[in-house]
Amino acid sequence: MSSGLMSYVWEGLGNTLLLTVFGALLGLVFAFIAGLGRSSERTWVRGIAMVYTEIFRGFPSLVLLFALIFIVPTFGYQLNPLFAGILALALNIGAYAAEVVRGAVKAVPPGQIEAAIALNFTPWQRLRKVVLPQAVVAMIPPFTNNLIELLKATSLVSLVYISDLTFSAQLIRASTGETALVFFGLLVGYGVIALFFTAIMKLLERMAARSLGRTVPSGLFGRKEVAA
């Protein structure tokens, strides 16, 4: 492949990784705000969090992206396309991951919170020192699924002319005519990136489990629940 075509590949790979990483980070922020919001004692906080998760879970990422790119400018404001892509993906994945946050927080045994009350921790200290460190360990495996979903969803941005990996593949296909080879290579590319993210998450999972004095079976695919 000529160096010209290779530069498409690198640009595409860079943007795909950028969309995935920043989409995940921003999505994580949405997930924690909404997930913790749904466990709030205040009804209106719970209400807002619920409306967010229910609405954004139901929006296809692609339609949301079209809305951000084509509707927002009618209000006189043009979003940077890459940022619009990150935002659309984050809003969507954040709504899914919020349920993960909520479930993991709820799964912390009530005795833990009672012990924190008995030591007179403030509500914020209970959350930060007792609930979250334990809940996060349970969040990581389902977050891995969310992250891979997000990676796959990034390919949608090619439809609004953001030069991600899929968009680059289309360019290369157009200029070489090698349809089968290019799409096969694209599939392999996404598969390798997914493996890379899975491995990183596995590492995080093992570190988190160790903080609770547990061990996780080694190996990329050895994701087993370990008794406390």
Partner: peptide, 17 residues
């Protein structure tokens, strides 16, 4: 008022983290 009181529980409830 609670700061003067504490409790030991049936199931210990140590913080595993």
């Amino acid at each position: 008022v609670r700061s003067r009181i504490t409790m030991v529980f049936q199931h210990f409830n140590l913080f595993p983290n």
